[in-house]
Design a protein around this nucleic acid. Structure first.
Lengths: 300, 300
DNA sequence: CACTCTTACGGCACCCGTAAGAATC
DNA sequence: GATTCTTACGGGTGCCGTAAGAGTG
């Protein structure tokens, strides 16, 4: 029994497939498979049930999963306490955020994390919340920061920050004091992210509350393009409050009147249940420090 | 970092020398040395201070000693819980007992242990208490069962059983009702174990209490020989109560009258502080079950 | 000189990745 | 056929023990 075998087993057991686990370990699938086979031989017990299409954890595998994680955690603890690098993370970290985060605080997060943990390699994925959740569940990502809480039992959520969105449109479309619902009623299209995105739920709630059902939708999976379309008077849409201020100062967009504000939109840090690595705690705290959707890093 | 390296480090750190540790691990000294060097390279910190004649734990080494033991314990726990062999010990176990135990309950202990833990190899050492304590402290033994408690800070003691000793002499030396002190006063020598033995302290206490100072002593480090000498009327001596009955029935020895009985003699299970392996708990319980000095396995 | 630990070295075994195979859906 | 995992195989690396070396008391 070796630490490598336990590590291979842990990732194979918690990821959706051996292929995913192998990728996380920078290992070939065959080597991972052999490591697990060796561990099974060493323990004298099959850890996976290979009868089906994909290998699933056996009862014996379930029994030792927690223990193997405990050993790996202790080993990491020993490593960090030996080097004296107080809580210095090292290795490899895969995270996912929405595009809005990518355009605002994600660069700060990576910069800060690299500063505090120079040995930590970070791999960031930008995608819509639903897909990130899927990838987190499959074990491809260590954590994600997305809108709302996850409904999956395998994913834990920690609220991090709230973002305020505002309805806006180009000055050419909306006079000062123009109402959002009036514009939508006039058939001006709604420019927004696709259905899987968290902000789309926010918009739907608002529309529902205002009994607006027949809004025409233009969807785009890129916030920069959406803001661009708004400035070019393609339609109306929502924009983070901080962005709205800047765009209004430049005269590119105008804030719309609404009967009620959009609800503050809660973003949460999400990670896999059972993942007790210090990495998760540290990154959650770090995200809590830097997460701020209101200030875009780059503004055309 | 590997489990083998941690194991090598743990034993090297807790044994008196690398040589002892290597022996416990069934490993050559050079391999052990290299494993430790590799661990140090992996952690980037010297774990031992090699400036002196013998390698001593460095501060960094002290820091990770507990953690490495924790990892090894968890690994052993995982191993046993995976195989389903509920609390089945395996591997190698070195123990030490006095000769009296060797002649009475030690065979029972080994037999019982082998029955419950077929994969456990046992290596028994018979010696006097002081030397066993020394060897336990040096890491050559896992546990010992000796008279009294240890005074060393590095050794923990758990009282196990009390043994009653009786003064006896050959019928040719002592008439029925003869007094022990009278015989000693008449210059009949005392036949006993050497000074390092626990029972010698018991005798000294008794002599002190009875103000007997000028007893002539014949020492021998073998109980069989001592009993033999007693039966051949070489002198007087003490014998475990159970033995006394048998010897008296056969007419080989006669119980002596005394003003006061020898104090009941407490034997204790002793192990190294910090050794939290299940092996220790299990063997302590096992010894508690079988330890009984009163019935010798073989009687001539 | 006795003792403890480290270094050099030859041999064996282990472990990795590529590539092909087996089994399921 | 696509996906998932396992098995065969060549190459390199790691790890062990023997033997010699270095340093201490």
């Amino acid at each position: 029994m070796t630490l490598k075998q336990l590590e291979a087993f842990y990732w194979a057991a918690t990821c959706a497939s051996f292929a995913t686990a192998a990728q996380r370990l920078n290992l070939s699938i065959s080597s991972l498979s052999k490591r697990i086979a060796e561990l099974e031989a060493s323990l004298g017990v099959p850890l996976f049930d290979r009868s089906g299409h994909k290998a699933t954890l056996s009862a014996a595998g379930h029994n030792i999963l927690d223990k193997s994680l405990g050993i790996l955690d202790l080993a990491a603890d020993l490593r960090s306490s030996a080097t004296g690098d107080k809580s210095l993370l090292a290795g490899h970290c895969a995270l996912g955020v929405g595009e809005l985060a990518a355009m605002s605080w994600l660069p700060r997060l990576v910069a800060t994390a690299r500063l505090r943990h120079p040995r930590l390699l970070m791999e960031t994925s930008i995608d819509v919340g639903a897909r990130l959740e899927e990838r987190l569940d499959q074990g491809e990502l260590d954590f994600i920061v997305v809108a709302g809480r996850s409904s999956r039992a395998t994913i834990l959520s920690q609220p991090i920050v709230e973002a305020q969105f505002l309805w806006m449109a180009a000055p050419s479309l909306a006079n000062e004091g123009s109402s959002c619902s009036a514009l939508l009623d006039r058939g001006i299209p709604l420019v927004a992210l696709p259905a899987q995105a968290g902000t789309t739920r926010l918009i739907d709630d608002w529309l529902m509350a205002h009994h607006i059902t027949r809004a025409e939708r233009l969807t785009c999976n890129n916030w920069g393009a959406i803001v661009g379309m708004l400035t070019l008077a393609v339609g109306v849409g929502i924009v983070p409050a901080g962005w709205a201020d800047r765009l209004e100062q430049k005269g590119q967009l105008r804030r719309l009147e609404t009967e009620s504000l959009l609800s503050p939109f809660a973003y949460s840090f999400q990670w896999r249940r059972g993942d007790t690595r210090p990495l998760v705690d540290e990154m959650c705290a770090l995200v809590g420090e830097v997460a701020d959707f209101s200030q875009p890093v780059i503004f055309a």
